[in-house]
Structure formats: C-alpha cells, structure tokens
Design a protein around this nucleic acid. Structure first.
Lengths: 328, 328
DNA sequence: TAAAAATACTCCATAGGTATTTTAT
DNA sequence: ATAAAATACCTATGGAGTATTTTTA
C-alpha cells in the first residue's frame, strides 16, 4: 500500500539528496527512511534512487515521482490547514517568511497586535533572503512570505500592502543642506554602501542609481544596522527604507534627505501559493500589517529624526481598505 | 498522523453518503472505515460527518476536506500510474469506459490487437452511459473514456478519433427505393424507434430529426440489437451508426439507406482528466482504435449488407496520422 | 579509513476483523 | 422493528528504533 509517509520521505530525500539529512528533517532514523523508500520502490515497481559516484541521485522516473509526491504533500498540508482553521480566520498555524530588510522593523510592530487578536495562532517565523523564501514557499515549507514585489512566479498570488520609499542617509557633516531634495547624481558623487549580494534592497538601490554593480563593494555589509553605523562614521552614504528609520536612526551623526520626485521606493507585499486555501487568512494578515504600520508611523512622526519629512512617513501609501490581490 | 487511507475512505464516504457501502467499495469492514473516519476527525480536529434525519451527511468543512481528499487520491493514482508504466507506452493498467452504443462494435475489433501489442497491459472495462462515465472519470474511478464528442467539461482533454455517420434502417418492405438518399422528412414520416433516455445516440438522432422529444417513446429499447429486431419486424425505423452495421445487420429483413448531405453523424473520441500523466498512452490507444476500425472496415466493405455504400464505410473520416488533441 | 546506506532484530502502535451494542427511524 | 453506525476485543501486520554490516570513495 502506498502511504503518505513514503511520499513525504521521498520528497525530503529529493530535496536533500542524502538519506541521513532527509531522515533528520523527517525526524526519523536513517534506516526508517531508507526502508520506506525501498518499500515505495517495491510498491511502484520502479527504481527511484541510484548511487552514482558516491552521491545519492534520483532516477528520471524517481524525479518525476518526487515532483508529484511534493505536490501531494502540499495538497495534504492545504487540506489539514483548511480543516484545522475550521473556518476561523487565522486559526491553526502559519509559517511566515520575511526578508531581512523588513523583519526587524515590521515584526515588532505587528506581532504584539497579532498575538492580541489571535492568541491561539501559532506563528513560525523564518528570516532570509527572497530567493530562499520563494524556494521554501514553493516546496510547501512556508505558507506565506512578506517581501518586496513584484515577483515573477506564476504559481504565486501576491497582495501589495504599501510602498516603502527610500531616503538617502548621509553623515551629519555632509555638505548637502538639511532640507534639500537629493538626486541620483548626489548619490553617485558619494561612496555608496550597500548590503551584500542577494538582498533585494541592494538590487533596488543599484537600479535607481543606474549602476550595473557597486563600485565600492568592499564596503558591503550584512545588516542595515551595520551600514548605518558606517554612514554615521563617515564612510559613505546609503539608501535607507522608511520602515527602518525609527529603528536605525538613533543619533545625530546621520542626516536623512528626501529624493526629488519620483522618489525611489520598493513595494512591500505578501505572497503565497495560489493553491493555498488560506487566502482569506493571508489577506487578514496583510491588513494587520498595514494597520500596525499606520499607527506606529503616526506616533513616531512627531519624533526626532525627520524634521523635513511629512507626518506618518512610514504609513502605507495606498489605503489599507482597498488592498488588491493580483495574480502575478 | 494523517494517512492516505483515511483520505481514501473519506472520498468513498463522500461519494456514497453511507458507511457500509463506502466500506464495501474500499473492501474493508464497516467498523474499519468508521474508525478511520473518526481518526481523521481527531487528527484534523474538526467534525466532518453528521447524522441528520437518519442520513449520513458531510458537514460544510467535511465536504471541502472530502473534495481535497478526492483530488489527492487522483494525484496519487497519477503518481503510481506514471511510475508503474515506467516510461513504457501502455504499461501498467488502464480503466477504460465506453458508451453502450460503441462498446459491442468497437471493442471486439480493438481488444485482440491491443492485447497482441501490449500483452502486459491490464484493461478494466466499464460500459455505461455518458453521464456516468464522465462522473466516474472526474472521480478518478476511470482513466479514459470512449464516447461521442463534444463534451463540455473544462477539466477534460479530448482526442477526436473519427466520425461515425448515421444511416436509416428501415424494414425490407419499405417503399423507399434501395439506393435512394433519404432526408429528415422520410424519417419524420415514419415511426422512429430510439434507445431509452440517457443514451447520447438518442439525443443526437432527435436533434437531427428536429424533434424535441420522441413521440413514439413507447417503442424505446435498451439496446441497438433489440431496436434492429424491432425494425426487422416492421415496427418502425431507426438511425443506425455505421460502426454497428456489421454486427447489427444480420439478414435481409432490413434495408440501410444513406442520408442526403450533410449526413448526420456523431464524432467519436477519447476523453481523460487533463491532469493525467498518461496522455501519451491514451493517444496511442486512440490510434489503435482508429487503425483497428480501418482494417476491419476495409474488410467488411466487400461484404453483404451495403450495396450502395462506398468502401471502408466504418473507416475514420479524418486520417489517424493527424489526430488532434483539443482541450475542451 | 571514513562516511553513507543497507541489513538484522526487536518492540509496539495500530489497522482490521468478528461479534455485539447503541441509536435513530 | 430494522437498518446503520459505534463500540469492544482480539490478532497480526508493519513501522521505528538500536546495533551492526556492507559498500564505496
């Protein structure tokens, strides 16, 4: 008899290419997984896995079966999700992925309210870069991700939440006057510090600055916090997203300058597999994010660091009431 | 732990609305199925089935889960199919449905050659009317069906095989001359005998004759054989499809008359779930059907009953070389 | 020699069967 | 009263763990 467990093990084996690690992911012993794979081969009457030059590799038919097994595993997860939530909005559990340039700024504002409104929701969080998030999402290891749009995956549905404008962060001693509007030229005349390869924020900044790659790549860093410290110390300038202002502008050693129109920005939104039965959950989650940022933005607008920026700087650009879903 | 078996039982239960009959289909005892359903409810933490006024009925959430369970069962069957066939054309097993007005005429011509070319193919046959066939196909209880096209199911793929023209079968004593071409008028001037409700052939004949319903419904029958006996005995006339000529015209008590152009006909083809991994198999099967009918048709053309009909009367109208697949 | 997968063997969870009881028309 | 589903109890299959062997680079 074919079992879901066998398909689960094969799915894991296909992703890891290694019996031991696949077993680890499935939280079983290696012989247990090994046995189930063999039983699966017996049931199907086909060889699924081979050992070429020491590596564990799937046969052609094994790969096709694994692909289908993955789809079935995702379908079963959707089934349990749709049953466990029991019609309640945001019941059960949600596995949420967030990019590193959003997580530290958005999550602290959203999670408390989320927990208050949905105390029985179990939230599993993963913070990593867009590519990894999308892979995990496709594999069914995540339910929904919060990242910069657009993304060009046909099998995903996306919900745009708000626009996040970039500001130019310069050392306090920079000659540019405090309230002036800056341009690409101003950026290119200075040393630009960016996140390392793989962060979408880096790519977005480079596109705006019309550079193919960063000339000052030796000044890269792995977190916005570090980059802002470098700016504060006078090593260069950077493009800082509005959501990060409250957390990253801590003293008077940096100035924030608005760009001339059209201001550079990134669109922030949610993405999930279009087969997911929890679209309503995710849209509710999206609204909570928008609401949380609006409140927080209004509060901090009266605060210190942005004398020349209009109120509610981190608030959503488009109204949360008319969030729209687009199938990309 | 959620198991495929539980989903299989729920799928069966949803279709039968009855624990005992569902258990019968699954070839297990009623308590066994009952237990698995309860275990499934425990695992999902949701009530799936209720007992309203003596009948077993699924809850709203139960119906949704059952729908997804059905999809998963079909996906697993596709998985095993794609593995079992092991890349070979028409390996493993195929569950074929055929409408009653084709099965007795097409199958005897196709099955011997099919068995010769694919001796290890296991073929499960079901002969019943179009509606039932399509339901079973959608439920994953059949792999492919042979019937009259077109059908308007979005989730099915179809392959047109050949056109099957209708001829007017009249008693030998009918005044119409032997080689004359007949029209709708000739039919309407006579007593028309048709299959009972539900047969697509009946509907096709009624459309051609421009009648909303059959006035002589008391002369209905459940098989073409019976109807031809009635025609031979002088009770009326009927529209006989070409494929049935060899089998149903056994003596000189009936005459077959061609219609004037455009001759009434039905299109015969195959249909399968578009998610099926065996499209290649089905197209090969389709070609075999076309080939088998061509050979047989050529042979019987020289035979007795159709002096005024051109050779290869039962041969496909369109070439088997350019069979085309249309997603309807 | 080392790492990875297969094998051996034991234990226990659980699916399934039969018999029976409960429940609802 | 009857039919259907739930419960009780027993059996046996098989999945998982630990320990060990085999295989291959």
């Amino acid at each position: 008899m074919l079992t879901l467990r066998q398909l689960q093990y094969l799915d894991a084996l296909a992703r890891h290419g290694h019996f031991g690690r696949a077993a680890q992911e499935c939280a079983v012993s290696q012989p247990a997984l090994s046995m189930q794979i063999h039983e699966l081969e017996r049931v199907l009457g086909a060889v699924l896995v081979e050992h070429c030059q020491g590596a564990t590799v799937l046969t052609e038919i094994g790969a096709e079966v694994a692909r289908r097994a993955g789809a079935i595993m995702r379908a079963t997860r959707d089934l349990t999700d749709c049953a466990c939530s029991g019609g309640r909005l945001l019941g059960g559990s949600v596995r949420l992925g967030v990019i590193p340039t959003l997580a530290p700024y958005v999550l602290p504002r959203v999670l408390p309210e989320l927990h208050r409104q949905h105390p029985d929701l179990r939230l599993d969080l993963l913070e990593t870069q867009t590519n990894t998030l999308l892979t995990r999402l496709a594999h069914g290891l995540l339910d929904v991700v919060l990242l910069a749009l657009p993304i060009d995956k046909l099998e995903l549905e996306t919900l745009t939440l708000f626009d996040d404008r970039f500001l130019l962060a310069v050392p306090a001693g920079d000659p540019l006057p405090e309230r002036s509007r800056v341009t690409t030229r101003d950026v290119n005349a200075r040393k630009l510090i960016l996140l390392e390869e793989g962060h979408c924020l880096r790519d977005q900044a480079l596109i705006y600055c019309a550079r193919l790659s960063d000339a000052d790549s030796n000044l890269g860093a792995t977190s916005l916090t570090t980059i802002m410290q470098m700016v504060a110390s006078g090593y260069g300038v950077t493009l800082l997203p509005e959501v990060a202002i409250d957390a990253e502008v801590r003293d008077d050693r940096v100035k924030l300058l608005r760009f001339v129109e059209p201001q550079p920005k990134r669109s922030i939104g949610l993405a999930w597999r279009s087969t997911s039965p929890r679209k309503a959950d995710f849209m509710a989650l999206g609204e909570m994010v928008v609401e949380a940022l609006k409140v927080q933005g209004a509060k901090s607008a009266s605060a210190s660091h942005l004398r020349d920026v209009e109120a509610r700087h981190a608030a959503p650009t488009n109204s949360p009431a008319k969030v729209r879903t687009s199938v990309t």
